[in-house]
């Protein structure tokens, strides 16, 4: 699932480690989400969206093809 986590994180001037710490997950998990290798659970996706002040749909883009 494509997402804009990296762009929004960089725009906030945060490192992957900073974001990981804010969300209480590992830096590896943030990296995997940003590179589309891991799709987060719904609670984590909501937490990420809330952190950036957007809706889940605005940051995660489901591909239906």
């Amino acid at each position: 699932m494509r997402n804009d986590v990296r762009e929004r994180r960089v725009a906030k001037g945060l490192s992957q480690g900073d974001l990981a710490q804010r969300l209480d997950v590992s830096r590896q998990t943030i990296n995997s989400i940003e590179t589309d290798r891991y799709t987060p659970s719904l609670p984590l996706a909501i937490a990420i969206a809330r952190f950036f002040g957007v809706t889940v749909e605005e940051i995660f883009h489901a591909d239906h093809n």
Partner: peptide, 13 residues
């Protein structure tokens, strides 16, 4: 981080 995650069990991935 992997060993920490495996022991702490607070990282969903």
């Amino acid at each position: 981080e992997t060993v920490k995650g495996l022991l702490d069990r607070n990282d969903e991935r």
